[in-house]
Design a protein around this nucleic acid. Structure first.
Lengths: 340, 340
DNA sequence: ATGAAAGCGCTAACAG
DNA sequence: CTGTTAGCGCTTTCAT
């Protein structure tokens, strides 16, 4: 097969173990032999067999990544590629590989996760979402396997590493821009209510209203997958109320795009007839018209920090559990109108 | 550490090799012992160590995936998640893992690819793009490492597995919808001209014009990254010509979204003032307004076929080189107007 | 500072 | 049909 450590050893006139030590830059090897061995490696075009190494020292230098089961359109949300970029960037610097879960259904994904961890394919896992009753998270926690969550865990807050925004505050802040512009009839449009991020964002939305002394009306909250016929109904009802909202807090930029379209169909213009704010600040939100006033949650940073945190945890098993909050900020664009 | 094959062997009163054979469902093991061994595995909660297995039989059951260097926004193109879904689906069924390239710059990606292949981490590689002078593709080809390309290779057409659409025909077809609606002043807006997909699509665009007897005007072709100030200039110039186009063939749905915005800024309406058609048919294209008339290239299928092809090639080294063309079809929506 | 040897968990001849 | 025995390529004591 390929060039092995033995070939290098022979070429450099040393023992295989010495080559191994050079590989890990062991300080107890003289500069002279290091030079010699390194030259031999170059000459022969040697590359260590990562599998063999993994087997020998029981560590794989690879991180597993779980996305939500790819069956739904959620994957087309630009959030994922962006967070992946953040992860990828630090993984590369730290010489870690990335192994992503396969499978379409929840069961398949779970199966692929088990394969990764029980098959000793990865040193740690990263979940790019957080939802209620998630089997993957439960499994990892129970097994005591190192992992990090992007989002907020459902319970066990102090036992699981997680990277999150302060989504409650973020929702307060973005709702406040509506309030400051004179809006009082403000509705919330969320996605999957099982996602903790949705929970937090409604919670913040409500708090903002409270603080402003605006009564909370439950018929002003709708949860919908985007663009399903059911979703369309929900939105229509919202605007057929006696007092339809003048402001919309939408849980996610991609959903906002969907909303924009539905509203257009109903002949409702943004921001003239209704103002809209949302979350994430993906690329799309700035190229769409109207450009969205949204919350920049620093997706890239989320991924970055998550990778760092996981790698630390993997390297040092009794690294304390961490909770890292990535700051957000409001970016105002053209989807909000000042009310008289 | 964990449960090993030896533990299972002991528990089932057989030799380790027997357990191994049960693992691979070797037909020369009696049903009785298979049952017994399998029970032992279940009881002990045994899972094979994939690394050890890889080392022993020199095959990793994992596929490497290369995306374009994630530095640019290209990654936010919903094309990638969708093709990944296709790949993931068959990878899972075939019990393959997916290892994605890390790094932000082209150099870093190249480095991570070398790590994968020379480090024996993957059995085959898949490139999710195809562009001129691509170091990764060159490297793989030269090394004779199994790989598959999504797109059309630049040269070596018969030496590299690839899955592609007939982009020339697709461009002809989509340009024809403009022509059939009476358009004659039709411009082409492409992205990175180094991508083979861009080449093919202009080529088809030109052929369509030719076949319709419409003269080809080079100032009607612009290549631009979306939304850069340079891009804006290019588009402005297009519409400041004596005879501005009445139809636009845009190389990609995401670019189309950017175009829509630029056009709006210039006060040009779609489809009233200019008609627009594009490629890919990502989710976005149906939820944006106007909904895009576009070419469905069956992204999921592209990924699916690519994975199948690669796995075949990996399993059987002298499987012939394949070229698979995934059919496209036109989906007409609301971005085109009939001209008088 | 370096070498010899055992072993990580599994597979694959080779026996029987 | 099943057991024995070598490795796969690397790391890591333990010597020297």
């Amino acid at each position: 097969m390929g060039i092995t450590i033995k070939d290098v050893a022979k070429a450099a006139n040393v023992a295989p173990s010495t080559v191994s030590r050079v590989l890990s830059d062991n300080p107890r090897i003289s500069m002279a032999t290091k030079k010699r061995v390194r030259k031999a490696m170059k000459d022969l075009g040697y590359h260590p067999n990562i599998n063999a190494r993994s087997l020998a020292n029981n560590s794989t230098q690879t991180l597993g990544i779980v996305m939500k089961s790819s069956a739904d359109k959620a994957l087309q949300n630009p959030f994922f590629p962006e967070v992946l970029r953040g992860v990828s960037s630090v993984a590369h610097k730290e010489q870690y590989s990335l192994n992503i879960s396969t499978g379409e259904t929840e069961d398949e994904v779970m199966e692929s996760v088990r394969r990764m961890v029980e098959g000793h394919q990865v040193d740690g896992m990263m979940l790019l979402y957080s939802s209620k009753d998630d089997r993957v998270a439960d499994y990892l926690l129970e097994r005591g396997f190192p992992y990090v969550l992007i989002g907020k865990p459902t319970g066990n807050m102090n036992e699981v590493n997680h990277i999150d925004n302060d989504n409650i505050q973020a929702a307060i802040d973005i709702t406040d821009v509506l309030i400051e512009k004179g809006h009082t009839r403000i509705a919330f449009v969320g996605g999957d209510p099982n996602l903790t991020v949705t929970e937090d964002r409604v919670a913040g939305y409500k708090l903002a209203l409270q603080q402003a002394g605006i009564p909370i009306d439950n018929s002003y909250q709708v949860y919908t997958e985007l663009l399903t016929s059911g979703g369309k109904e929900a939105v229509r009802e919202l605007f057929q109320m006696d007092k339809p909202p003048t402001g919309l807090v939408v849980a996610d930029d991609l959903m906002s795009v969907g909303m924009l379209t539905m509203l257009a169909e109903f002949g409702i213009r943004v921001p003239e007839d209704v103002s809209l704010v949302s979350f994430n600040n993906v690329y799309l939100s700035e190229i769409i018209r109207p450009a969205l006033t949204t919350t920049d949650v620093q997706i890239f940073q989320l991924g970055n920090q998550a990778a760092k945190c996981l790698i630390e945890n993997v390297k040092n098993k009794d690294e304390p559990i961490k909770r890292i909050i990535v700051p957000h900020n409001i970016v105002e664009r053209d989807s909000v109108k000042q009310l008289e």
